[in-house]
């Protein structure tokens, strides 16, 4: 469990980092942030990059700030920092709640929010959060900067819309005016979840005005559960409405089974997480009014 040989650079600007990716393009370079996913994969030799571009000294990537209605999370913001940040608590409490489920505190002190999203593990929490919040991905490459909506970002397991020479420099999370919940089911505390659910619900005049529900662990990428959202909007948010949303959401699911849960059990567990997540988001939305 030792990585194969690789070279390593520590640039101080995003432009230099991109240039290094271009320079080492033949070596299948990878960007290193917190290293909590990439380095284990390298140790297992499942990832064998010939060059690593470490972002740790790139100026400005550790900023965590409010920009109008958006929370902007830079590529080097550690998960533990975001978890305890007042800005996150205010502008994206869903992210804060989800971070509490990410592995263990020592991992969160090194791992980054953006790195986890870029890694795009279909069982991970933060990609589902980004998807539920309709986050925008700020990407910098040789051609400059572009923004990718979260809905177009996750293409498959560990696969995103990022080009090989692009860096995900920040994630912009719009504020959601309503209730939130992140619920997951894991075999043991801190382990990868079997299923995770990110739920956002806004209530106006006693009826659901807006809903966003995303799940991890039920498909090759995190998925938005539009059917559940549609089932909720316009309803009063009572138990019947929640159950209808859960039914609508799971009707469209076709998860793969693995060693931790068969497809049937995964769907059973998704129902429970959805029911709890939507229910909790609804209660919080009602409390906020």
């Amino acid at each position: 469990m030792k990585p194969p040989p690789f070279t390593y650079s520590v640039p101080t600007t995003v432009a230099d980092a991109v240039a290094l990716l271009v320079e080492h393009a033949e070596e299948e370079p990878r960007v290193l942030a917190g290293g909590q996913s990439l380095v284990p994969l390298m140790n297992f030799r499942l990832a064998q990059p010939g060059h690593l571009v470490d972002l740790r000294r790139v100026t400005g990537l550790d900023t965590l700030r409010l920009d109008g209605d958006h929370l902007v999370v830079g590529a080097m913001v550690r998960q533990a920092t975001a978890e305890r940040s007042p800005e996150v608590a205010l502008a994206a409490p869903l992210l804060a709640e989800a971070l509490g489920h990410v592995a263990h505190p020592p991992v969160r002190h090194s791992g980054t929010v953006v790195g986890s999203i870029a890694h795009a593990d279909p069982a991970a929490e933060l990609p589902a959060v980004a998807l539920a919040l309709d986050a925008e991905m700020t990407v910098v490459g040789p051609q400059g900067e572009r923004r990718i909506p979260a809905g177009e970002f996750f293409l498959g397991p560990f696969t995103t819309a990022l080009a090989p020479e692009e860096i995900l420099t920040e994630v912009r999370l719009p504020r959601f005016p309503g209730g939130h919940a992140f619920v997951e089911f894991a075999r043991t505390h801190g382990n990868f979840a079997v299923v995770g659910v990110a739920a956002l619900v806004a209530v106006e005049d006693g009826r659901v005005s807006r809903a966003a529900v995303a799940a991890s662990g039920v498909a090759p990428t995190p998925v938005r559960l539009a059917a559940a959202e549609e089932a909720l909007v316009g309803m009063t948010g009572d138990d019947t409405a929640v159950e209808a949303a859960v039914d609508a959401a799971t009707a469209g699911l076709d998860p793969a089974g693995d060693v931790h849960a068969s497809a049937a059990t995964r769907t059973d567990i998704a129902r429970v997480c959805l029911r709890e997540g939507i229910g909790r988001a609804l209660r919080r939305a009602e409390d906020r009014r």
Binding site: H260, A261, A264, T265, D268, I269
Partner: peptide, 8 residues
């Protein structure tokens, strides 16, 4: 007695 076996 995993969740999978109990659910099954």
């Amino acid at each position: 007695m995993t969740p999978d076996r109990l659910r099954a």
